[in-house]
């Protein structure tokens, strides 16, 4: 069953034709199932074409957790073909139903292996912080997702953009960093680091500990998107997004007109 669902997701991603919620077509799908499906889904990517560049953490905010009726975040994997350069353009054929979020990204200089990883360990293992825009996307029709749906679908990962300014983790307190998200020059979101589980570094620590349950770890050089600082905003062709983060700088992305 897992293999078939993984194929369906891969087919949806490559054809860009969304599929009904997995939990509707496969009753009783658990979170455990979903992470296994995610692994199988990602194995279908062509390893000659793309490589793992990091991880993303999702559902880090109270409102999102409440919406899906959960009390812990989830995670997905970032790949090299998901990276859009700062000020770059997202082509129409790169997304299906994109939404934009602003986050603080942690780039690691040391491996982080759980359990018992703390926020302080994360800061210790972090090379630098960089502002990021995450473009989330769903292979599930109309974003009608429950927790297993989004987990299986690589935590609704799409693309990501990183800013150009690098900040040492000790030079800034990530939880008090203010964030403003602009769409076509208009403010569409404001937030602060603490909205990600009280502290973005806590989110990264959670991920390191969660991965250890599967015998995995975060690796030096990886980029970790720590969680959205305001609600995801729908993107349409031609839209231009800017995220500004206090001390960390800004990051921009543009969606192609057609």
């Amino acid at each position: 069953m897992h293999a078939q669902i993984a194929k369906d997701l891969h087919q949806a991603a490559t054809s860009r034709v969304s599929i009904p919620p997995l939990t509707a077509t496969h009753e009783g799908l658990t979170v455990e199932d979903a992470y296994q499906i995610q692994t199988e889904f990602l194995q279908l990517k062509d390893s000659k074409e793309t490589r793992q560049t990091g991880r993303k953490i999702g559902l880090t905010s109270k409102p999102m957790q409440q919406l899906l009726g959960v009390n812990e975040p989830d995670y997905g994997v970032l790949f090299s073909d998901m990276l859009i350069q700062n000020d770059g353009v997202v082509e129409t054929n790169q997304t299906m139903q994109p939404k934009v979020e602003a986050e603080i990204a942690f780039v690691l200089k040391r491996n982080l292996q759980g359990p018992n990883v703390t926020a302080a360990d994360v800061i210790e293992a972090t090379d630098y912080l960089v502002p990021s825009i995450e473009i989330v996307d769903s292979r599930i029709k109309d974003w009608k997702i429950t927790l297993p749906d989004t987990i299986a679908d690589n935590a609704s990962s799409g693309l990501y953009v990183l800013g150009n300014k690098v900040t040492a983790p000790r030079d800034v307190d990530a939880k008090s960093v203010g964030m403003v998200l602009y769409k076509n020059g208009e403010i569409v979101g404001t937030g602060v680091g603490a909205l990600a589980m009280g502290d973005p570094a806590t989110c990264v620590a959670w991920l390191a500990n969660k991965l250890s349950e599967y015998g995995e770890e975060l690796k030096a050089g990886e980029t970790i998107l720590s969680g959205a600082l305001s609600a995801a905003v729908e993107a349409a062709p031609g839209d231009h997004f800017t995220a500004k983060l206090a001390h960390l700088g800004e990051v921009n992305v543009r969606f192609a007109k057609s």
Binding site: V192, G193, A194
Partner: peptide, 24 residues
Amino acid sequence: LELDLLGATITINDEVKAGGAGAA
């Protein structure tokens, strides 16, 4: 000072309950 990027949080009994930035 970049007041528009200044972050604010409210904690109630030590739990973060709400947050925002000056631009709000």
